[in-house]
Design a protein around this nucleic acid. Sequence first.
DNA 1: TACTGTGTTTAGTAATTACTAAACACAGTA
DNA 2: TACTGTGTTTAGTAATTACTAAACACAGTA
Lengths: 176, 176
Amino acid sequence: MPIKLSIIKQDFTEGLSQISRFWGFPKGMGAIFAVLYLSPTPLPLDEIVSQTGLTKGAVSTEVRTLARMGLVHRFSKLGDRKDYYEAESDFYKSIRSILKERQNSEFDRAIRSVKETLEKFESGSVSGVEAEVKFVYERVKALQEFFNAIDTLASAVIKLENLGFVNVTKILSVLK
Amino acid sequence: MPIKLSIIKQDFTEGLSQISRFWGFPKGMGAIFAVLYLSPTPLPLDEIVSQTGLTKGAVSTEVRTLARMGLVHRFSKLGDRKDYYEAESDFYKSIRSILKERQNSEFDRAIRSVKETLEKFESGSVSGVEAEVKFVYERVKALQEFFNAIDTLASAVIKLENLGFVNVTKILSVLK
DNA sequence: TACTGTGTTTAGTAATTACTAAACACAGTA
DNA sequence: TACTGTGTTTAGTAATTACTAAACACAGTA
């Protein structure tokens, strides 16, 4: 008994919804991406609406977020009032733009605040019991260095674009 | 006018709370970790309570989650009824255990479902217009390969433990 | 056995987030 | 100018999540 393609599509969409939620995005976002990703042709908003069961409003705002993250692209056809949406299928490209997007985010602000804390220590303007000041300084510094390492690694990841899987294997061999 | 250490600690704690929220964890979790991370000595539960302003109940459950993720360690002292908590300061170690923890998570279940979908295609048991079936198959497969690459990369990251920053730089040079 | 000090669980509330329904804006067309 | 078809914004609701307050369990001690 063969499985219908439409069932497969539905399963896949549900899977991406879960993954989306897992990473702290609305599950609707995952669903919208899935629908576009599995469509051979770009889809207009109302088509996304009917395939996901969300309302126009929700799709309108979430598809915009997806576009800002570079996961989907919006464009219009001449002589057609509708906008069309298409999924980005180069994930390394998407990752790059997501990371860029996050650059100006709350996360980065928090990281920068750690850095500023460190600078206060280094300008010697922190008062308190010497041993404790030193301890806290070392800890804050260690965290800062860890963030830097992760940041460098992230830069490495976005370079994976157009390089593909082979190089990930290379990385592994360096680390052995 | 020198800055008091206690102010610094407070700023740092707020910063980690934000970072915690950004990654989809409760902000209280970040605060608890920060307090422990900046303490030169292990702290009992009631001390965490007073330094974070959370209630016993909240600290009790969240500290357990942190322990499961390997970000803090709990232990008891002989002849002392209290439990004591200490932050893990080797972040690579923490990352490794967080990734392990996630292995059995919803995320992994979702990823596995993508794999199963793929297997259905490969056993030829999907019905539908041939061209469309093929298109969807290719797309699902591409996503699966991407997940694999990320997975491999994650394995690489956890190997960074005890290797440190130098090797991240090495990685970068390979990618140039 | 009752009491004290510890951590845990539970029932409920507060805060946040995702989403809906509907008003709206605006461009193109009769 | 009114009408139609599009996407957007807004006000409010539903669902979820983080957290509190308080009951509870349990081990050790008088």
